[in-house]
Write a protein that binds this DNA or RNA. Structure first.
Length: 618
RNA sequence: GGAACGGUAGUUAAGACGGUUAUAACGCCGGCCUGUCACGCCGGAGGCCGAGGGUUCGAGUCCCUUCCGUUCCGCCA
């Protein structure tokens, strides 16, 4: 079969010609009734072909849209006859005249549906093999196929729309920041590895064998140096690299809108960031955002939502019950470090199967189970646990959760980290399942007063929550060493519909404080000097107070475009195993290349493959 | 490092307890058709059921291993 098709394509390819002196006069989306009578030249791809024997209709597609062109034996017999060879995705140029469609033949679904172009002459600019999937929005090809044929996938109008939207957002950002006095400065991609934070992508140095560059996780240090250099307002739309596992909203290389400002405090940065978002939403979606955005401290976020990036488009807040059940006869509750609950209004109708599914869901976060109470009436509570609760406890639960007949309550008891994660994520999960999230709403939120440190159980030490250059809040300097768990940072995250879209902080600009921070993180003087000496020295020479923020551009565009994955707003994304199905990167390199770099693999790749195949079979 | 789901014509899917020649839709190829627009009608081709091994008289179906994709946990200063 494929031979047959290739023969066909080969045969057709004989008719391919160059543009010659033909010039495109307009795109495939612009012609309307006002253009009737105009002679035009369109170029594009064959989207659909409807051959009626007599008339041949072709929907011609370019990046802007579709126009129906008609090959008629009455108008141009030769052009009509030759049009028989047209197939999907053939590239053609047509010259013809715009005319209104016959009475009742307009297509209201098409922007250009009132008119058509009747072809006088046309050229075959290229043939195409039959694409492996339909080049249409409604195409339901699997993502692996789409990624392997990404250049075809990107022809689909929805993908074009996403990348056009991305472009518009980037231009809006550049315009705003330029007008606001920011300077765009590029920083190195080949830079120094710093073990704090994410895993680095390493690049071997040929001229310095045994040494490696790292690709930047972010331009953090360079932008602070630029502040020390006196540029005052910097920005960059820049690729960042982190060698960590992928998610729907995480790629190994991703784009940040990175900004840094001198002589500012939190208010200045947050206000600027809000106005930037306002501009982007105005220019890209034509939507007005109300400023300022609501704010919430990290403590409040964890208390009410269990997560540091609350989705505020719906309620169902977490309610604290730890104190109320401290002396409960129900030992599981009484002994738990934390007990919290959420209420699903009208959730009494949930089936056992649905509740079981939610129980499975919270197990992901380490929960042992999921206690629930269905409020059948004021007095009748259907629940596996209600019988363990005293009347007083019931009353507290009823009051705090404002429980009414027809509701269901879900409880979680245990370590605060687990309770918050389980209920916080269950809250969002249920809201999605039950369609409680209003469509087409954008809820921005600032989360502030983040902890300065978090305890790393593996390394048995405190590590920076944001990064080690974040300034502690006023009055929290002493806590850095005396009580690191309670030290708070001058850090802020911008949250949009439950997604972290940006984060930043006021930085440490005093060398003494920076040194203290390294002490708190358990760095020796030597190690601090070796790894961050250049920043430290810059702080010693008149560093201005400064702070900044960085936005995850891919996530922001994903939300603007209404997509579920950032892969849909990145032209050439990687799979979850960080491979590129189009180019087959990463790939093996020659021994000669490795030798030049002074690198020898511990195990030859072929041997590894063999080892896999040799594994004993059951 | 871990968990879950998926892989069957070009594509998307169906395939009851393991049992005839593995279905359907779309796409593709050929024919017909002068107003279609997801055109219509008639005909046709198209399959190593991801790969390897096992159980069995017999495997798309059961078991094991492995590869690929997706989602999530860990991880992501």
């Amino acid at each position: 079969m494929s031979e047959q098709i290739q023969d066909l394509q080969l045969e057709h390819s004989k008719y391919i010609t160059d543009l010659g002196d033909w010039t495109r006069t307009c795109s495939c989306s612009h012609l309307t009734a006002e253009d009737v009578g105009r002679d035009v030249c369109l170029m594009g791809w064959v989207q659909f072909r409807r051959d009626h024997g007599g008339l041949i209709f072709v929907d011609l597609r370019d990046r802007e849209g579709l126009t129906q062109v008609v090959f008629s034996p009455d108008v141009a017999p030769e052009a009509h006859e030759q049009a028989g060879i047209l197939r999907l995705e053939y590239v053609i140029a047509i010259k013809g005249r715009v005319r209104t469609r016959p009475e009742g033949m307009a297509n209201p679904n098409l922007k250009t549906g009132e008119i058509e172009v009747v072809v006088h002459d046309w050229k075959l600019l290229n043939t195409s093999k039959t694409p492996p999937f339909a080049i249409e929005d409604r195409c339901d090809a699997g993502e692996n196929l789409r990624l392997a044929w990404r250049f075809l996938d990107l022809r689909r109008p929805c993908m074009q729309k996403n990348l056009i939207l991305r472009h518009r957002a980037m231009q809006a950002i550049r315009r705003f920041l330029d007008e606001d006095g920011f300077l765009e400065v590029e920083t190195p991609f080949l830079t120094k590895s710093t073990p704090e934070g994410a895993r680095d992508f390493l690049v071997p140095s040929r001229l310095n064998q045994g040494s490696f560059y790292a690709l930047p996780q972010s331009p953090q240090l360079f932008k602070q140096l630029l502040m020390c250099s006196g540029f005052e307002k910097y920005f960059q739309i820049v690729r960042c690299f982190r060698d960590e596992d992928l998610r729907a909203d995480r790629q190994p290389e991703f784009t940040q809108v990175d900004m840094e400002l001198s002589f500012v405090n939190e208010e200045d940065v947050m206000s600027m960031a809000e106005r930037l978002m306002q501009r982007v939403f105005k220019d890209v979606l034509g939507r007005e955002l109300q400023l300022p955005f609501p704010r919430m401290t990290w403590d409040e976020a964890m208390r009410d939502y269990g997560v540091d990036k609350p989705d505020t488009r719906f309620g169902m807040k977490l309610v604290e019950l730890t104190d109320a059940v401290r002396n409960s006869g129900f030992k599981l509750f009484a002994q738990a470090p934390m007990v919290k609950a959420i209420k699903v209004e009208g959730g009494e109708s949930l089936t056992r199967k649905e509740i079981d599914a939610y129980t499975e869901f919270v197990r992901i976060y380490g929960a042992q189970g999921l206690a629930w109470i269905k409020i059948k009436s004021d007095t009748e509570w259907q629940s596996p646990i209600a019988k363990f609760l005293s009347e007083e406890e019931r009353e507290t639960i009823r009051t705090r959760l404002e429980a009414k007949t027809g509701d269901i309550l879900f409880f979680q008891a245990g370590d605060p980290e687990m309770v918050n994660a389980a209920l916080g994520n269950l809250r969002v999960h249920i809201a999605q399942k039950l369609n409680l999230i209003p469509a087409d709403s954008f809820n921005f939120l600032w989360v502030t007063e983040f902890p300065l440190f978090e305890y790393d159980k593996e390394e048995h030490r405190y590590v920076a929550c944001h990064h080690p250059f974040t300034s502690p809040m006023e009055g929290h300097m002493e806590l850095m060493t005396s009580d690191p768990a309670h030290a708070k940072a001058r850090a802020y995250d911008m949250v949009l519909n439950g997604n972290e879209v940006g984060g930043g902080s006021i930085r440490i600009h005093s060398a003494a404080t920076q040194m203290r921070m390294f002490e708190a993180l358990g760095f020796s003087d030597e190690r601090a000097e070796e790894q961050f000496g250049f920043l430290f020295h810059a702080l010693e020479f008149g560093a201005p107070p400064h702070g900044g923020i960085a936005f995850g551009l891919d996530r922001l565009i994903m939300l603007l475009a209404g997509c579920q994955s950032i892969r849909d707003v990145i032209a050439f994304p990687k799979t979850q195993k960080a491979t590129c199905l189009l180019t087959s990167a990463p790939s093996q390199v020659s021994q000669a290349q490795l030798r030049e770099l002074g690198i020898r693999l511990r195990e030859a790749p072929e041997k590894k493959a063999e080892a896999r195949a040799d594994k004993p079979q059951a």
